[in-house]
Every structure is written in structure tokens, then in C-alpha cells.
């Protein structure tokens, strides 16, 4: 019942399509997932009705580690049984386990609505946001681990510094050649098409799921990674910045550990909780870079 497989197939088909089409593909795929879920939910509900209350609990297997605490220096899995309710997310279950069974259970979370990017976790073997993952969509027991390929600080908390460093290395800020005078209250013009073009790329919430899923990033610590390249894409494609800036941005992503490392495995695109067509953005930057190099030959 993994929706992951579904998504990967659909996304792979979109490789050569333009942004608008990608979005509707993502949309179609979501609708497909929804229908599938509805069917599953019916089954789930039936199954639940047959269970009596005491059995209506979900089993969590949660990764535990604390470098300072006796008994936790060696990673282990703890099991929690949490009462299930309709609409329960993985984050709800973790909060319940923490507040009722073990207040030392540690994980990041804040918004509960897939916008703060705090709770990307490795759930049943796949990178997902805890708050955006419905319990009914998973095989039970549910296994929850910290994001792979990142240093674990404690329990489900990983060190995000490296991810932030990569994000910040692509000069991730708007830097136009000139802007109108502020006092004139004049905005820069941007046509709708150009805004559409960058729209998906601006949705990134810095959750790190993509980076964690990427084999290349796992092997090459200096690889910029999908999120940082997507950030560069967001600016390179923004016409408000001007041509010179675009050149500069293409130079950044063309470096040794930049776009050419990507082997189009699509794992990042599959796990991105904001449906950003990452692989496609990387491919497009490769094409732009080639065009650019030809121009200067």
C-alpha cells in the first residue's frame, strides 16, 4: 500500500514535461492516491470496527539514542502502544507517546501542518513528514527513525547544519542588478508566466527529506544536493534578477559538486512533501548550463 511507489511512477513520466504539466501530474497523482486511500480507509474502518477498544492501538517502534544517558548510548528501538483515532498522524502518535509514556522521547516539530519543515523522519523506510503522514496509510507496526545520512543528535533529532550550509552556499537570496527606488513605491514587474515558472521551486520548506534520500549526497559530502540546487533554480529562473546574475548562478551550480553529480534517480522528487519536481529542475539547469557554455565558446 505504499504511496511512494505510486508517486515514483507518476513522477518519472513527467520528466520531459513543462512546469504546468508537472503540476497537474502531481495533482493527478494526488487524486489517484486519494481514491486509493478512500478504498483503504473503508477497509481500515471495517477492520477497526471489528477490534474492541483495547486492541485499537497502533504499535510504534521508535529509534532511541542519547550520547549522554546510560542505556541509551547504544542505539535501540523502543515500542509504544498508542490509542488510534481517525485522522491520527505519525506526529500525533509520537506526541501521545511522549506525553503519556516517556517525556524524554525527543523529536522536532512545531507547525503540525507541513509548513515548518521540522519533522522529516524515516517512517517505515521512507522519508516523510510526521505531521503529514496519516497512520492509516502505513503498514502497522510503524517504524520511526531519524533521517538517514545525517548525524543523529538524539533520538529522532538529526544535525541539520550540513544541510543549512549547503542551502546557504548557493547565495540563496535575491540579488538583482538594480531595483526601483523604494520611495517611489514602484515594484519590479514580473509576468505571470515567470512567476508560474518559479512557483513550485519556492515551496521548499527546508525539511531535508530530499537530501537524506539521495545516494549521491550520501557518497559525496560536498554535493550541493537537491534542495540547494532547487534554491539556485528558483533564483536563476527569476527574470527579475537579470541576465548577468543568471550567468553567475549557473556558474555556482555548475561547480564540481553541483548539478552534474545528479544521476536522475528521482529519489528526491519521490519524497519531497511539497511535490517539487526536483529532478526536473536539476535537469533543466543542466540544459541551461550547456546552452550557456555554448554561447561563450
Amino acid at each position: 500500500m505504499s504511496t511512494g511507489i505510486q508517486e515514483s511512477e507518476t513522477e518519472a513520466d513527467t520528466e520531459e514535461q513543462d512546469t504546468a504539466a508537472e503540476e497537474s501530474a502531481a495533482q493527478r497523482q494526488r487524486m489517484e492516491t486519494k481514491r486509493q486511500r478512500a478504498a483503504e480507509r473503508d477497509l481500515q474502518e471495517k477492520a477497526e470496527e471489528e477490534l474492541d477498544d483495547s486492541e485499537n492501538a497502533v504499535e510504534l517502534k521508535v529509534f532511541r539514542y542519547d550520547p549522554e544517558v546510560e542505556g541509551k548510548e547504544e542505539p535501540r528501538f523502543d515500542t509504544f502502544h498508542v490509542p488510534f483515532f481517525k485522522g491520527m498522524t505519525v506526529l500525533d502518535a509520537l506526541i501521545y507517546a511522549r506525553d503519556h509514556f516517556d517525556s524524554s522521547l525527543t523529536f522536532r516539530h512545531s507547525c503540525r501542518q507541513a509548513i515548518c519543515g521540522s519533522d522529516a523522519l524515516f517512517i517505515n523506510g521512507r522519508q516523510r513528514l510526521g505531521c503529514k503522514t496519516q497512520m492509516v496509510d502505513l503498514d502497522w507496526p510503524v517504524r520511526i527513525e531519524p533521517l538517514p545520512h545525517q548525524d543523529v543528535v538524539k533520538d529522532l533529532v538529526v544535525d541539520m547544519e550540513h544541510f543549512y550550509d549547503q542551502m546557504e552556499s548557493v547565495e540563496p537570496y535575491f540579488d538583482p542588478e538594480e531595483t526601483p527606488k523604494k520611495s517611489d513605491l514602484e515594484e519590479q514587474r514580473q509576468d505571470r508566466e515567470n512567476r508560474e515558472k518559479i512557483k513550485m521551486s519556492t515551496r521548499c520548506i527546508w525539511c531535508g527529506a530530499c537530501m537524506s534520500s539521495c545516494n549521491i549526497a550520501a557518497g559525496d559530502n560536498e554535493y550541493l544536493g537537491p534542495a540547494a540546487i532547487n534554491k539556485a533554480y528558483r533564483f536563476a529562473m527569476d527574470e527579475r534578477e537579470g541576465e548577468n546574475m543568471k550567468q553567475h548562478r549557473l556558474n555556482i551550480i555548475e561547480q564540481e559538486h553541483g548539478v552534474w553529480r545528479c544521476q536522475t534517480q528521482f529519489s528526491c522528487t519521490e519524497v519531497c512533501p511539497k511535490d517539487i519536481p526536483l529532478t526536473e529542475h536539476i535537469q533543466e539547469l543542466k540544459r541551461e548550463a550547456v546552452k550557456n557554455n555554448l554561447k561563450f565558446w
Binding site: Y173, F174, E187, Q190, R192, T202, D238, R240
Partner: peptide, 13 residues
Amino acid sequence: EHWGMPFSREDDG
């Protein structure tokens, strides 16, 4: 806007 915020736009940009 001058800092690059991707506002929704009118036809005239």
C-alpha cells in the same frame, strides 16, 4: 517585492 518575494501578479506584471 524588491527583496524578491514571489507575489501573485496581474497581467501587467
